[in-house]
Amino acid sequence: MLDVPTQCYASGIEKWHTPTLNINKAELKPLQQYYNSATRQEQASLTDLAPVMLAAGTTSLASIKTTFQSNTVYLTELVQHYNDFKANTITKGQYDYRRKKVINQLDEKLGPLRYALNKSQTSREILRVSRKRGRRPTGNITRQIARMNKLSKLAHSGGILLAGVGLGLACHDIAHADSALQKNHILVESLGGVFGGVVFGGAVALTLALIATPVGWVAALMIGAGGVAVSYATGAIFKSIYDTNMMQVDLAQISGVSHLCR
């Protein structure tokens, strides 16, 4: 009886779709255009690099989004208290007390993020009611709400998606590999990339603690690029170790990856 190759099975197996970059086009259109026109190798590099690039600027904002959005309610409450004061519903003493309480609550909820939002100014300085003639009295507060919401929107898209795309690419390649050797090479290179990336991250953490130099966005980008290079090199090294010492071992089969990615 002949063994029937899996490619000849009737389609009950889901058709694999190459992962596409699906991010907020308004904010990250250039990145999406570049990704869609890049070669497979460039796409693989981008999925490693872009999360760190975006982490330096906006990926961490994916979580900040939640923090900011859930805290705009305090700013809205400030505006409401001011309107109550102007409508003589509450006294000045009551207004000052409520304003102080809301600002303290906001500072506590934002935590260290208040420095990102306010830089060197305190929340009290930012959230002043303007007394200038002709200006809306609560303009400062409304501007702060708009700023928080804008930062939240930037965080909506992001590099976190790209981490999943990177793994998807490797699984796709394994599924479409011609031979067991090729599957093992892809698996070993991917494992090498992960190992190299984690070692690099650990080394960077140690170095930053030792030299204590502040890390800005540019330095974070360079660190990200270094991580990609180390991951790539470690992948090649792992492949070399596999070829010289473990070629008889079908790692993809033993680990179950060849069943998972098909």
Partner: peptide
């Protein structure tokens, strides 16, 4: 920590 670090290192 610098302002940039505070912003970057705030969240997981």
């Amino acid at each position: 920590f610098s302002i940039g670090e505070v912003a970057m290192l705030s969240l997981w």
